[in-house]
Amino acid sequence: MFKRLMMVALLVIAPLSAATAADQTNPYKLMDEAAQKTFDRLKNEQPQIRANPDYLRTIVDQELLPYVQVKYAGALVLGQYYKSATPAQREAYFAAFREYLKQAYGQALAMYHGQTYQIAPEQPLGDKTIVPIRVTIIDPNGRPPVRLDFQWRKNSQTGNWQAYDMIAEGVSMITTKQNEWGTLLRTKGIDGLTAQLKSISQQKITLEEKK
């Protein structure tokens, strides 16, 4: 169930391209415009997507990853294993993690069937560096609404905000991946996880038929 919630949630996290980005210092504006741009692209490019579902990787690479804190999220997933990894191991892992996100997020976007969304009203940021933004996803086919909290983090150097995690039903996506990959990290280390991520990233994206 959580895996499905995570995939549905990713439908609204794909941010804007650099040329049309919203105010990078306001995570609420980023979330709002990102959702609108993403849904528009999914709707307008269905012919290309249906002809070649792996085209979704391109959308992810162009529109999402430049505005997601990939390395920060990847380091959180590694936890204690990050500090013990060599620079070469980290570089290989982050490259594999990025390719994994292209496949995983692309597969999530393949679930698009006309969903709509509501974003919580903007709250004062103050001096906060981590801000959760509640998004409610509404399914046109009558499924119950899904309420999610996207975690946005302020870059201490640039002042810009980027998304790095999502919490559904009190469970963090980062925590879920830590639990899912924990045994592999304990037995085969970061190299074993890197190899698995490379394998997963090679899987073809498949479209979910409308139910």
Rank of each mutant, 00 (worst) to 15 (best):
D139V: 06
G192K: 04
N26R: 05
Q123N: 15
A18E: 03
P121L: 13
F97G: 09
P87E: 09
A110G: 10
Q118R: 06
A95H: 01
N44Q: 14
K37Q: 00
S17Q: 01
R50D: 00
M6L: 09
V77E: 14
L78Y: 09
N141G: 09
V77Q: 12
I205E: 08
P144H: 09
I174D: 13
G114D: 14
S17M: 01
R57N: 00
T194C: 03
M166V: 09
R41W: 03
L76D: 14
V12Y: 10
Q46W: 08
Q196G: 06
G192Q: 07
A88V: 05
M1S: 01
P124T: 04
I119G: 11
Q118V: 09
P66E: 14
R57Q: 13
Q203D: 08
L16H: 05
S156T: 06
A18F: 01
Q202F: 15
A35L: 11
W161C: 11
D23N: 14
P53D: 00
L207P: 09
W181A: 09
P87N: 14
Q202G: 10
L16T: 07
Q178K: 12
L76M: 08
V146W: 04
M6Y: 00
P140W: 02
K154W: 10
S199N: 04
E91C: 05
Q151C: 03
R98W: 09
R153V: 05
E45G: 11
P132Y: 03
L207R: 06
A120T: 06
L16S: 05
I137K: 15
Y72M: 14
L101E: 00
S201P: 09
L10Q: 01
Y117L: 10
Q103V: 04
R134M: 00
I59W: 00
K83T: 02
I137N: 01
Q62V: 06
Y117F: 11
N155I: 09
A21L: 05
A14I: 15
R57P: 10
K102S: 13
Q103P: 01
K188I: 13
V135W: 06
N52C: 14
Q202S: 11
D61E: 06
L148F: 07
I119H: 12
A51C: 00
L64N: 13
P121A: 07
L184K: 06
T86F: 10
I119F: 07
I138P: 06
P27W: 14
T194D: 00
E122I: 06
P144Q: 03
G159K: 13
I137F: 01
P87V: 10
A14G: 10
Y28N: 15
T187V: 05
V70A: 13
F150H: 02
I59N: 00
K211R: 12
Q36I: 14
D165Q: 14
Q203K: 13
E63F: 03
P47I: 05
E63M: 12
Y82S: 05
F2V: 09
Y28G: 12
T20A: 04
Q62D: 06
K154Q: 01
L5S: 02
K154E: 03
G182S: 08
P27M: 03
P47F: 01
A22H: 00
E209I: 04
L109W: 11
T175F: 15
Y112M: 14
A75K: 05
T175G: 03
T38M: 05
S201G: 10
T206R: 10
L185V: 14
E169F: 03
Q89A: 04
T25V: 08
Y67V: 01
G126H: 00
Q62M: 01
R90C: 03
Y105R: 03
I130K: 10
A51M: 01
E209A: 12
G159L: 12
E33F: 02
L11Y: 10
I13E: 15
Y55P: 07
D23M: 09
I133D: 15
K43D: 00
T129C: 01
R153I: 05
V68I: 12
K154G: 13
L30N: 14
V77P: 11
P144E: 12
A35N: 04
P87C: 15
I49T: 04
M1W: 04
K3E: 14
S199T: 03
P124M: 09
Q178Y: 00
M111N: 11
A51R: 08
M6R: 02
L148S: 13
G142C: 14
D23P: 05
T158K: 04
V60Q: 05
D32V: 03
L11S: 01
K128L: 10
F97C: 01
Q151M: 07
Q151H: 04
R143V: 06
R153Y: 06
R98H: 04
K29V: 09
E180Y: 04
V131T: 08
